[in-house]
Nucleic acid binder design. Structure first.
Lengths: 171, 171
DNA sequence: AATAGCATGTAAGAAGTTACATGATTTC
DNA sequence: GAAATCATGTAACTTCTTACATGCTATT
């Protein structure tokens, strides 16, 4: 369901797009909340077209298909956003790793936490940079979400590395 | 792989535990980074025992089995934490919904964003409360990660609701 | 002429969900 | 004695990943 909703949302936001374009969109902005590869996206789009949530608006060279949301698709998306109680479950391998890192000794965990903090700083800066050049409101809000999340992990990794270091120095 | 690592990590952290106990542990602390249900956990534990990452240390009433990590399991976990480059992909249905919410009109999106912000405030406070009563360092760092993440989403939802409101007032 | 990017697809297998199934123990 | 919690398991299904497969177009 989530993949279907994500695709509907991206199509509403960007207007008509191909499976390839939607795959790219996932890699960039939407990647902070959902993830999908082309091998999952192409069949899903076919299925969505089959039950009327999207339609082919153009067929180009080399089998290229441009899809757009139908009225039924818009209704489905709106209903989901307004009425559906989302699952509060998360799967994030990078965060799982951070979560478990304090199980290692200070000599190993502190440098790894600092490295992660630096990575999150870089990502936050990149997103901030992107935000300042975005014309579109919705895209800006979306990039800001990523920004807040990066800053949160950066702050946590730094705070935790500091705490582990202090503890190790005191012991 | 991630489920296996999560289970190894939780066992190292808490000491020997049953499938039931690990399922509970997922619902509480680990739920901020990974998710698994008992129907996935029980077979996974059997598989991990079969290849020597964990072992049964006690068999109790009604088929209860208590597992603990083996030395091989510890080595596997450490290697993964130190050497494995984690996938930077996220799947979070609640965030996907937030991400798409600005596609709705201000009358619909603003109240929904405010409601989410309030929910994140509640969760952040609960985690903060939990932190102040935790004796164990590792558990505290873990709860703090959840805390930072909740505050980030709270800040984003508030900021976005404000921006949408201002924009609507100006137009 | 080679490389990178555009563009789509499928098959096999792994991971995860839903639903069914069972039964003891503790708390109200 | 009813309800909640402890405790484990499996089967069918859906979702997601990995790997293979193809071929055009633009750039260097």
């Amino acid at each position: 369901m989530s993949l279907r909703i994500a695709l509907l949302g991206l199509l509403v936001e960007s207007g008509a797009a191909s499976g390839y374009g939607l795959t790219k969109h996932f890699e960039l902005s939407a990647g902070n909340v959902w993830h999908a590869k082309h091998s999952q996206i192409y069949p899903e789009l076919r299925k969505m077209e089959a039950d009327g949530a999207i339609e082919t608006v153009e067929e180009g060279a080399r089998g290229k298909r441009t899809y757009d949301v139908t009225e039924a698709g818009r209704v489905e998306l709106r209903r989901w956003l307004v009425e559906h109680e989302p699952e509060r479950t998360i799967r994030n391998e990078a965060s799982l790793r951070m979560f478990l890192l304090p199980l290692l000794g200070p000599e190993e965990s502190v440098p790894l936490l600092r490295a992660e903090a630096a990575m999150y700083t870089t990502r936050a800066k990149r997103l901030d940079e992107i935000c300042s050049h975005i014309g579109n409101d919705v895209s800006m809000y979306q990039a800001r979400m990523g920004y807040h999340n990066m800053r949160a992990m950066e702050a946590w990794a730094t705070e935790t590395a500091d705490a582990i270091e202090q503890k190790a120095a005191g012991a």
